[in-house]
């Protein structure tokens, strides 16, 4: 017991101070991309062509190409930014990405990125200080699970916000789903959803859970959770940084309300 106490002293206190203070992020972290379509050469499709998962569509902005990035499909790989000769498309360190609607997950020049809103009235009053989640892993790569799990460790300490993961869906207030929902998991996801007592929320974490990720279009899976259950919060990324997930969860329960994201620092 004494060694345990000494070890405790040595290891120190490590919980970060988010949301009051944003912990340091890796400078190379690829967060929310920004597009400056004024830099786009006419007729250029390099970014869209480089994207293996068809996350980028090229619209037209008065004759100039206007890339629109669907963050729900985006795997945050550097293919598009590497392919963009004038650096019109680049990733920033902005980690705030979660949205309340699938349609909000779009980055385009001149478009305000609408971050997730808090739950409505009664549900928010119910879950504002206590939200138990049943995590369902369904046909992903276990990457999002890694970062969902990390939130439980002492650096992130999800419990301090009254959010925790529970064993039984009966104890849960909502479902947090990772993975694109393989055909073999379809029934299990439905059964879990039905086993949760209402009112219930659903959170889709990661590119797979939102739109199938790198496996989009495979007949072995359902291309995300939204086809099976109503999703209240979309957290994009492959996998999302733990801070992205935490930010999303706190927005959902109304602990973070600011919409105006601070100016994004330049990408490293």
């Amino acid at each position: 017991m004494i060694t345990a106490l000494l070890a405790r002293l040595r290891q120190g206190h490590h919980t970060n101070r988010f949301p009051a203070q944003v912990p340091p992020l890796p400078d190379r972290l690829r967060g929310r991309p920004v597009v400056d379509s004024t830099l786009c050469p006419p007729g250029c499709r390099a970014c869209a062509d480089a994207c293996a998962v068809d996350a980028i569509a090229i619209g037209a902005d008065g004759g100039r190409p206007a890339p629109r990035i669907d963050l729900g499909k985006c795997l945050f790989c550097p293919d598009c930014s590497e392919a963009c000769p004038p650096k019109a498309l680049r990733f920033t360190n902005e980690f705030r990405l979660a949205t309340s609607a699938r349609g909000d997950l779009e980055v385009a020049d001149g478009r305000v990125y609408a971050l997730g809103r808090a739950l409505a009235g009664r549900i928010r009053r119910l879950y504002g200080r206590s939200l138990k989640l049943r995590v369902v892993s369904a046909g992903g790569c276990n990457g999002c699970e890694v970062d969902v799990n990390v939130l439980g460790t002492l650096a992130w300490d999800l419990g301090r916000f009254g959010i925790s993961y529970v064993a039984s869906p009966r104890h849960a207030d909502g479902m947090l789903i990772c993975g694109g929902v393989s055909r073999n998991m379809e029934l299990a996801v439905r059964k879990t959803w039905e086993a949760i007592p209402g009112p219930k929320v659903c959170i889709a974490v990661g590119a797979c859970a939102i739109a199938g990720g790198p496996f989009a279009g495979h007949p072995e899976q359902c291309d995300g959770a939204a086809g099976l259950v109503p999703v209240d919060l979309f957290i994009p990324g492959c996998p999302p940084h733990p801070l992205t997930i935490l930010d999303g969860l706190l927005r959902l329960i109304g602990r973070i309300e600011d919409q105006a994201a601070p100016p994004a620092p330049p990408a490293g």
Binding site: R8, Q11, G12, H13, H14, T15, L126, Y127, R129, S130, K132, L154, A155, D157, G159, R160, G162, S164, R170, D173, E194, A195, I196, P197, G198, P199
Partner: peptide
């Protein structure tokens, strides 16, 4: 939580949990 080196849930968390459970549906 203090032993582990984290903040941990609020002291009153069990009350919050109870208040929520008593007001929500059952399956």
């Amino acid at each position: 939580a203090a032993f582990a080196g984290r903040n941990g849930p609020p002291l009153l968390q069990p009350y919050f949990d109870l208040a929520k459970l008593l007001r929500k549906q059952a399956v």
